[in-house]
């Protein structure tokens, strides 16, 4: 069953910015769905339309078969959104904020659940403090708790881990995984693509308001992600015209020590064998060989031509690679 069906959704802001153009997306029930895109792609706009804080210009959305506009109240009770911008209520404590949020959503506060949320999100030691005294990371975790307090069927997280350190992030993902295993559908935006690849079973990539691709993660990595074969010769091979022609299909890239070939797809696997044979014909047997598969990050970069990371984000984002 489809948890969320988005049909031809467009958004033009008052200043003329076209943030979304004709986006259609199906989010299966029980999925852990990554919505990815570079800065300004329109992710938050999409999420804010679902949250009812931004009005759509065109298009329809339905949640478990119920129209989002016609049955707002029914739908709202079943959606929990973590907004991208940190918000907090300076008059109250995290426990009070959670009780209020629960009430606003029409649920009598369930203090066992509130305590569990505070514990899992590592706020329990701060649950009696005024939210003013919380750090930025704690406030963001409180937003996660607020999104979960009415036990929504669909949880939407807009960059919930910006500014959250690695360890905490891991524990937050573990919690999300548990909720997902218990049947909650999760839609997530993040610029930690390694984590999205590991965590999510579906992925959509948008850029400049347009949907580039949307498919199950496995299919994405099988069919869109490329594999590369690198062959080690101990020196740079000489690419004669004949060799160039023979290897053209593999988009050869030379390095100091060898050559890297891009493998194509074919029935049941890849063109590994043809590539290897062609290289042996041109340069002889290699001294060593290896395979490298594109990661989600590479696919993302190839499709959008942009990094996923947020420029404004200070931190440990791209220390790797």
């Amino acid at each position: 069953m489809t948890a969320l069906a988005i049909n031809g959704l467009s958004k033009v802001y008052d200043n003329g910015n076209q943030a979304l153009s004709d986006i259609s997306l199906q989010i299966p029930q029980g999925s852990f769905y990554a919505l990815l895109g570079p800065n300004g792609a329109g992710k938050s706009t999409l999420i804010n339309i679902l949250a009812d804080t931004v009005l759509a210009s065109r298009g329809a959305v339905s949640l478990f078969g119920h129209d989002l506009l016609a049955e707002r109240s029914w739908c709202k009770r079943r959606i929990g959104v973590v907004p991208q911008e940190v918000a907090f209520d300076p008059f109250f404590t995290p426990r009070e904020v959670l009780a209020f949020t629960s009430g606003l959503f029409g649920c009598k506060p369930d203090f066992d659940w509130i305590d569990e949320l505070l514990t899992r999100l590592e706020l329990i030691d701060h649950s009696g403090k005024n939210t003013r005294q919380l750090s930025g990371g704690m406030r963001r975790r409180l937003l996660v708790a607020q999104a979960l307090v009415h036990k929504p069927k669909l949880v939407i997280l807009d960059e919930p881990t910006a500014g959250v350190d690695v360890e905490l992030r891991k524990r937050l993902w573990d919690f999300m995984r548990e909720l997902n295993a218990a049947g909650t559908t999760i839609l997530l935006t993040t610029h930690y693509l390694d984590e999205a690849e590991e965590l999510c079973d579906h992925v959509a990539i948008i850029d400049r308001g347009k949907l580039l691709t949307a498919r199950p993660m496995g299919e994405m990595m099988r069919e869109i992600a490329s594999s590369y074969l690198w062959l080690h010769y101990g020196k740079a091979p000489v690419l004669t015209d004949a060799a160039s022609e023979q290897l053209a299909a593999f988009e050869p890239r030379l390095s100091e020590h060898g050559i890297c070939l891009k493998l194509g797809k074919q029935e049941g696997g890849s063109t590994f064998h043809q590539a290897y044979q062609a290289a042996v014909t041109c340069f002889g047997a290699p001294l060593d060989a290896g395979m490298r598969r594109e990661k989600l990050e590479d696919v993302f970069l190839r499709l959008t031509g942009k990094q996923a990371s947020r420029k404004t984000d200070a931190g440990d984002d791209h220390a790797s690679d």
């Binding site: 949250a51 804080t53 907004p83 959503f105």
Partner: peptide, 8 residues
């Protein structure tokens, strides 16, 4: 935004 997101 919580007033907008809530089913009120």
């Amino acid at each position: 935004i919580y007033l907008l997101m809530a089913p009120l």
